[in-house]
Design a protein around this nucleic acid. Sequence first.
DNA 1: CGACCGATCGTCT
DNA 2: GACGATCGGTCGA
Length: 220
Amino acid sequence: MSPACRQAGLSCEQENLMMKKLPIDFYQRSNVLQIAKELLGKILITKWNSIETSGRIVEVEAYNGKIDKASHASGGRRTNRNEIMYGNGGFAYVYLCYGIHHLFNVVTNKKETPHAILIRAIEPLKGIDGMLERTGKEKPDSTLTRGPGNVSKALGISFRQHNGHSLVSNDLFIAEDGFVFSKREIMASPRIGVDYAGDDALVPYRFYIKGNPFVSGKPK
DNA sequence: CGACCGATCGTCT
DNA sequence: GACGATCGGTCGA
């Protein structure tokens, strides 16, 4: 059960009822930084292989399209791999990183504007046993869904099966339950692992929840 | 602590 | 043939 529902004294049944899937309009807006911040506190859910897993988003990074040197679409670069970024918002962009990790992104904005938001960390809510099974971990500590590679592993997201998947589908989507982080809990910093991006490596496009144990990087 | 390193493979040059 | 929007481990101070 989510902290928000526990605080409100709601049962799991009631919690399900108040869960609302984000509509396609949420994703197709033009301000990727705004959407990235709004994703903090929302719930990412997967339901497949008879397992439902979900977690509250606590860390994201925005990638600001063609003008962003850190983006795969930098300079209008368009390849087989990043093609989905050039489509409409509301779809998953999943790619393989270092041959090992499947990184899950939310595509935003409209056709031909390749905006994306990388989901870097979630706080597990449902299906923790399933997450442990998928990751091979013994205990649900803070490394379970810390960092983008771990998020995908715990939720069973892979680039072969889920790249281009709709986010208004019934098996992979983001929902809101009324919970919101307060503004002062939301921190901004440069993005991680984008040293190659020159001056764009320094822009504060990473947003995370202050003090949350699932947030990647060094605590500060 | 911090620095470094190996894993592993699809994609692009 | 080189290289990642990473992770977890090791090693030395």
